[in-house]
Design a protein around this nucleic acid. Sequence first.
DNA 1: AATGATAATGAAAATCATTATCATTAAGAG
DNA 2: CTCTTAATGATAATGATTTTCATTATCATT
Lengths: 154, 154
Amino acid sequence: MVLRLRGEGHGWKGRFRGCGYRWTLSRKAIIDVLSSTKDHMSAEEIYNSVQKNYPSIGLATVYRTLELLVEMRVVMRLDFGDKRARYELAETFSSKDHHHHLVCNRCGKIIEYTEFIEDEVELLEKTEKGLSMKYHFKIDNHMIQFYGLCKACQ
Amino acid sequence: MVLRLRGEGHGWKGRFRGCGYRWTLSRKAIIDVLSSTKDHMSAEEIYNSVQKNYPSIGLATVYRTLELLVEMRVVMRLDFGDKRARYELAETFSSKDHHHHLVCNRCGKIIEYTEFIEDEVELLEKTEKGLSMKYHFKIDNHMIQFYGLCKACQ
DNA sequence: AATGATAATGAAAATCATTATCATTAAGAG
DNA sequence: CTCTTAATGATAATGATTTTCATTATCATT
């Protein structure tokens, strides 16, 4: 049995310190927001949400922190074609299952699907292995998206 | 045997007229550039390249034309995380085979791979069918990208 | 707990890709 | 060849993201 005596069980402070970064209130506040939403929030949406608990935070800090989190592989940066980056916690830190996205080209609606994932994952692993060998690429991430029209927009 | 008596064989003019658009010099110049490159060019790169044959073209026209071409499904808009859209001819109009992309997170190098594609395509078709049914989505496109570190950046 | 080095922050200005505006030009139907 | 109007070029505007810089907060060390 694993004991987690203090904290939320993620060891955020240790993770930051281990990378040579400091553990700050704003970083905690941003991670809290990302942890408690199901949405793919933009930087500004995250900023607005964080402000409720931490009114003095600045937008630049949100951008800087998100970049840091992406670099630390704690957060995934997503592009749904709406001209702004969107963010979600990486699978390791999220309560969501492995999923990919279906994007409506007209209204921008996003559906996360978890079906058919097993086969996908299996194939992707095989592909990753093949690509790594052939191109000497160290692959650590992938993205699959389907684009089309949602029910309402057809 | 198929006879193509005039033009480059793509019937561009007819395609444009068929959609209610005019066939213009700048549109031809932009398609020419896209047809004769292997790169994933940004709007500005396309602009610079077109200018060599067509010095009076404006950047705004390039942007407008690219948007039109994307809407007509002649061109694919790609995002490699470098903060600017990049474009390539859709498979139907390209001499390239069906491929996906490998993106280096450090230097931005892009590798196009065509290996392992058959299995991918097969799986994607199955997935598309399943997703269409379940979510009533009309899927007309997909994207797969792998991210990691290229040989030089590891 | 106090100190000091310096990473992190907030506010505001700067950047830069993309879009909108508007007067002018040129497709192409008749 | 003429006329209608879509398309264009130049330029200003927009908006997301970055940078700058003076100030503040973290945390290893005392």
